[in-house]
Amino acid sequence: MTPPTEPSVTVVVVAGGDPPTPEEIARLPANPVVVAADAGLDHAQAAGLMVAVAVGDMDSVSPEALAAAEQSGTRIERHPPDKDQTDLELALELAARLADRVIVIGASGGRLDHLIGNLNVLASPAWAGVDIEAWLGNAQAVVVHSHRALAVEPGTTVSLFALGGPARATTSGLAWPLNDEVLDPLTSRGVSNQVQSSSPQIAVSEGVVLAVIPHP
């Protein structure tokens, strides 16, 4: 007799960039586990999300949001301002211990250096066993450590980027496929591919690939 499989767990990480849009909130799974990264607590509360844990140095969250979270029973994990990790990295570290899938919202906008750092943090091998994606307002970024099927329709634009070093990838369902080929992070080889069939596949045997799907 086959043992029952454990139900998958999705954690939503709310970052402190631009507030998530109503459309993004509506697309979230029902009753998600929510982790807020610092000022992401303000965004989460404004969107009506129940936050399980707020994490960070709490230098940018509003005093009102922090007081409301403490009163509602949200667990607060404070870290010193003089730390080596961003608040988002701390939130992802926590989320990866809890989840099979992590959706990051609120990570776009704000400072360019934060956005670049956030995209690199998403691809950390520390959470290679978790499906991670970020909703970035006008785009979706999907991390591929081994294999992912993208939930996109034919005609959609997809760009593939190697993060952290060269990545060896094989794709199917794209106009210009890769067949066990190397993507170099210092070239534009993977930019602006086109989806030809539903649910295109990306398999990565070495390195990490970030699939970016712009929204019209």
Rank of each mutant, 00 (worst) to 15 (best):
Asp100Val: 01
Ala52Tyr: 04
Arg168Gln: 09
Gln45Gly: 04
Val34Lys: 09
Gly190Ser: 10
Ile25Lys: 05
Asp18Ser: 09
Val130Ala: 02
Ala141Asp: 11
Ala95Gly: 10
Thr21Lys: 11
Ser60Asp: 08
Ala30Glu: 13
Ala47Asn: 02
Ala39Phe: 00
Pro177Ile: 07
Ala39Asn: 06
Ala134Ile: 03
Arg75Ile: 06
Val195Trp: 04
Ser8Pro: 12
Ala54Tyr: 00
Asn118Ser: 14
Leu183Val: 11
Val212Tyr: 06
Val11Tyr: 03
Gly137Ala: 09
Ile105Gly: 10
Gln196Ile: 14
Pro166Trp: 04
Glu206Phe: 01
Ala26His: 10
Ile132Leu: 15
Ile103Leu: 14
Val191Leu: 13
Ala36Lys: 10
Gly17Asn: 03
Glu181Asp: 15
Asp180Ile: 03
Val14Thr: 12
Glu153Asp: 12
Ala26Arg: 12
Asp113Thr: 03
Gly207Arg: 12
Val143Cys: 08
Ala99His: 09
Pro22Gln: 09
Ala123Pro: 02
Val208Thr: 15
Gly109Ile: 04
Gln45Val: 00
Met58His: 11
Gly106Glu: 05
Ala26Met: 04
His79Glu: 01
Leu112Lys: 00
Ala65Gly: 00
Glu133Asn: 10
Thr21Arg: 14
Leu186Gln: 15
Leu28Phe: 08
Gln71Tyr: 04
Pro185Thr: 07
Ile132Arg: 05
Thr5Ser: 15
Ser199Tyr: 08
Thr170Leu: 08
Gly137Thr: 04
His79Met: 00
Gly56Glu: 08
Ser197Gly: 03
Arg168Pro: 03
Ser172Gly: 09
Val12Cys: 08
Pro32Val: 12
Asn138Gly: 14
Glu77Gln: 13
Pro63Thr: 06
Met58Val: 01
Ser146Met: 04
Val208Ala: 02
Val212Trp: 07
Gly137Trp: 05
Ala99Gly: 12
Leu136Gly: 00
Ser205Ile: 03
His147Glu: 13
Pro7Asp: 11
Gln201Arg: 15
Ile213Met: 09
Val143Ala: 03
Pro154Arg: 14
Ala139Phe: 01
Leu122Met: 14
Trp135Gly: 11
Ile132Ala: 00
Asp82Thr: 00
Ser108Trp: 14
Val51Arg: 06
Ser159Asn: 15
Leu88Tyr: 10
Ser124Glu: 09
